[in-house]
């Protein structure tokens, strides 16, 4: 056996069935090692193919396969549509009943104070308002503007209040 063993690229050529020159073909004929390696690859891939195909066939058989039926208009089946409609209706009716209940409670709440607004309460409120007015309108001297307190004058030789404080 004079020719060297096949390298990776030459193996790839052989497996792809392209560019196999006569030297490679001759080597494959006379070298059992390279032949065995090539055969190992082919058989391994064949085993993988058969194993994976059986696996996917089994999986296809067990999983739901019906994608589009001729009668239906799309993915979603009739029962799904009916369920969606039922859910929408139930949500709609519950919202409607809730709104009605809210309206009823608000009318009760607004009408109740009206009944309590009696004449006595109005008179009491008026009295309170008058008392407040009296307190506001009472004339009292402002403590800082009393006559006996000297008002500081700012000018030359007179220190500002802030300067006095800082000292």
């Amino acid at each position: 056996m004079t020719s060297p063993h096949l390298n990776d690229d030459q193996f790839a050529d052989c497996l792809l069935g392209s560019k196999t020159n006569s030297a490679q073909a001759a080597h494959l004929l006379e070298c059992p090692g390279c032949r065995e390696e090539l055969e190992l690859f082919r058989s391994s891939v064949e085993n993988f193919n058969s194993m994976s195909l059986v696996w996917s066939e089994k999986r296809s058989a067990t999983s739901p396969t019906c994608v589009v039926s001729k009668g239906s208009s799309g993915w979603v089946s009739n029962w799904a549509w009916s369920m969606a409609i039922v859910m929408l209706l139930s949500v709609g009716t519950s919202l409607h009943t809730r709104n009605e209940a809210n309206q009823a409670s608000s009318t009760v709440q607004t009408s109740a104070p009206n009944n309590q607004n009696s004449e006595a309460e109005i008179a009491k409120d008026n009295e309170l308002m008058k008392a407040v007015n009296r307190e506001i309108s009472r004339k009292e001297p402002f403590p800082l503007l009393a006559d006996n307190v000297p008002v500081p004058r700012y000018g030359r030789g007179v220190k500002k209040q802030s300067e006095v404080r800082s000292e």
Partner: peptide, 15 residues
């Protein structure tokens, strides 16, 4: 024939 199409090609496509 979609059902036939699925029956024939689904396993290979899935793989």
């Amino acid at each position: 024939e979609i059902e036939g199409l699925i029956r024939i090609y689904r396993p290979r496509l899935l793989r």
